[in-house]
Design a protein around this nucleic acid. Structure first.
Length: 298
DNA sequence: AAGACAAGCAACCGCGACTCT
DNA sequence: TAGAGTCGCGGTTGCTTGTCT
């Protein structure tokens, strides 16, 4: 599939003489070309790499494709509960420093995290007519969404054995042994203590094999299907909405005493730092939120 | 069955920072 | 030191797919 060319706003990295620079989704051939070239010559110097490899792409495009998709250690699949929680924590600390946040989520790219934030979190702030940076929204995140995530994580931990058995039996679990969730912290590994109380195996994610070239379907000869993998219908996915609409969620309403310590939570920034987030969006919670005043500030 | 709409995400863009000569 | 080239980040766009009517 070829994309209609957008207006070229003279990107200053695009000094490539030719007008036939390709844009849009990458083809399998292009992917293989890039992979092979990097395997032989290494990465870096992307503009010259693009030329040398014979790719009609900008160096920038090649870099992005490699880093966000083709790199062997890119972790594919849905954002897990633990990752969601960590993203919230880290965003509370650093804001939109996506690349920084991504450093703490091995295999996840800044682009993926950014997309997660924009599609899930900001969407719901918008639904609540809440500014994502408003105190109300942050309190909601802090007192409702994050505890709920923790609850879900703990519930998952409690049933992980059963789930793993069932999933294995149905072939839905893949590479569980490679799926341990450890938080590597670039500066200080001890800051990732939250992993202690987290599920260490991600049985929610049935789509985490690393694929190169096409999305989860290496036998698909249709290039157009290679670049937009099937979304949704992932029965093992614990979705964002699942996380915030669990039947047990009522127990976490803020007018009840929330015993964070009893939750065996690590000493995470979102507990100690008021500028953090939480989120929940079922009907009752929406009502509660509105009663709390969220939405009045816009 | 088909069109409209929404969701999700890959890819692009602009720009500032960095590196090299 | 200046300027050109390159890199990397954050914001945005637009395409594909799923869902709803």
């Amino acid at each position: 599939m070829d994309m209609k060319r957008r207006l070229n706003n003279n990107n200053n990295d695009n000094n490539d003489d030719d007008m036939d620079l390709r844009r849009g989704p990458w083809t399998v051939d292009e992917d293989l070309t890039l992979i092979n070239y990097i395997a032989n010559h290494g990465e870096g110097r992307w503009n010259s790499l693009a030329r040398s490899a014979g790719l009609k792409r900008t160096g920038k495009s090649c870099r992005l494709r490699w880093l966000n998709y083709l790199r062997p250690d890119v972790r594919r699949g849905n954002i897990t509960l633990e990752e969601q929680l960590l993203i919230l924590e880290l965003h509370a600390s650093w804001g939109n420093r996506w690349s920084k946040i991504a450093q703490y989520l091995p295999g996840r790219t800044d682009n993926e995290i950014k997309n997660y934030w924009r599609t899930r979190v900001q969407k719901h702030a918008k639904q609540l007519k809440c500014d994502v940076n408003s105190k109300q929204f942050k309190d909601t995140m802090r007192f409702l969404w994050m505890p709920r995530l923790v609850e879900r994580i703990q519930a998952a931990a409690a049933t992980v054995t059963t789930a793993a058995t069932a999933a294995t039996a149905t072939g839905n679990i893949m590479n569980m042994s490679n799926n341990n969730f450890g938080y590597a912290t670039p500066e200080n590994s001890s800051t990732g203590t939250s992993s202690d109380s987290f599920v260490t195996q991600d049985y929610c994610n049935n789509n985490n094999n690393v694929h190169v070239g096409n999305n989860n379907n290496n036998n698909n000869s249709d290039p157009s299907s290679d670049y937009y993998h099937q979304q949704g219908n992932n029965n093992n996915q614990v979705s964002f909405m699942d996380c915030i609409t669990s039947p047990s969620s009522m127990s976490l309403f803020p007018h009840q005493e929330m015993d964070f310590q009893a939750m065996e939570l690590p000493n995470t920034p979102w507990i100690n730092n008021p500028s953090t987030f939480s989120n929940f969006w079922n009907d009752e919670n929406m009502l509660l939120l509105q009663n709390l005043g969220c939405g009045d500030n816009m």
